[in-house]
């Protein structure tokens, strides 16, 4: 794992690296609150970037700007070389390539688990029903909820729902997956089943941006840790370096609060 991350980081440091998501000088305000301040962040293909930081630091907002669920005030965001378009068909097409997993799962409450995973394929990708169902079942098996296919989301536990949500996003064959605090709404005993799926995904080479409070996951799966506070990126480093030897005082303070109790 560490070998992989070293080679990936080496790639990322060269200007010709395979850049998939590029945020350039991004700024955003919520009224008077300057929630994203001069954010520069590049995510390379196959890289797993974990964003951590205290509550209200803007990390969720950062994650949501990447598929334009939040608009930005200035700066630019490009995905695979294309700048994010205005709301409309073109943006919809681009979003289909960006998987999103939410803190509150957001499975479609009126559809079964299987329909949840099929809907994007049939309605957006225009895949035929049989192929979509086959793929949906395979993905549900992969995340370990294959036996729940015909149930409704409300009949599943939180951990199962979140794994279905991951399968739903994967069904679109996304270029990059965004995780917005995927385990924050889960009971402790269910966190690991979701993290295991994410670990597997990272090992399979998926490009991932993960906003989380799970430091264990950050240590083991991330190629790079991005530490945010007060709307700024304070520090970016390899996980080992960040956790063992943080450079900024803000990061030291944050880590001392969460790692020792």
């Amino acid at each position: 794992m560490s070998e992989v991350s070293v080679t990936k980081n080496a790639e990322g440091s060269t200007p010709a690296g395979d850049q998939l998501v590029v945020l350039d000088n991004v700024n955003k305000h919520f009224g008077a609150l300057h929630v994203l301040q001069d954010i520069d962040l590049t995510i390379n293909r196959g890289e797993v970037v974990v964003v951590i930081g205290p509550s209200g630091s803007g990390k969720s907002t950062l994650c949501r700007t990447i598929n334009r669920l939040e608009t930005i005030d200035s700066g630019s965001i490009t995905i695979d070389g294309k700048p994010l378009p205005q709301e409309g068909r073109e943006l919809a097409r681009l979003r289909a390539d960006v998987g999103m997993v939410f803190q509150s799962f957001n499975l479609f409450a009126h559809k079964t688990v299987l329909e949840n995973v099929m809907l994007g394929q049939t309605k957006v990708r225009k895949t035929d029903k049989a192929a979509a169902e086959q793929k949906a079942r395979a993905l549900l098996d992969r995340v370990g909820v294959g036996t729940q296919a015909d149930k409704y989301p409300a009949q599943l536990s939180g951990g199962q729902q979140q794994r279905v949500a991951i399968a739903r996003a994967l069904a679109m064959d996304p270029k990059v997956m965004l995780f917005d605090e995927p385990t924050s709404a889960l009971d402790p005993e269910m966190i690991n089943e979701v993290l295991d799926v994410m670990q597997q995904l990272a090992r399979d080479g998926m490009t991932m941006v993960v906003v989380t409070h799970e430091m264990g996951f950050a240590r083991s799966a991330a190629n790079r840790v991005v530490f945010m506070a007060d709307g700024r990126i304070i520090e970016e480093a390899e996980p080992n370096q960040f956790f063992n030897n943080p450079r900024s005082d803000r990061a030291k303070d944050f880590l001392s609060k969460i790692l020792h109790h």
Binding site: A92, R95, D97, L107, L119, G120, K123, V124, R168, M172
Partner: peptide, 13 residues
């Protein structure tokens, strides 16, 4: 969140 999830999948308005 329901609409956000749908839009994230690439559905139009």
């Amino acid at each position: 969140g329901q609409a956000e999830a749908a839009r994230s999948l690439g559905m139009t308005f």
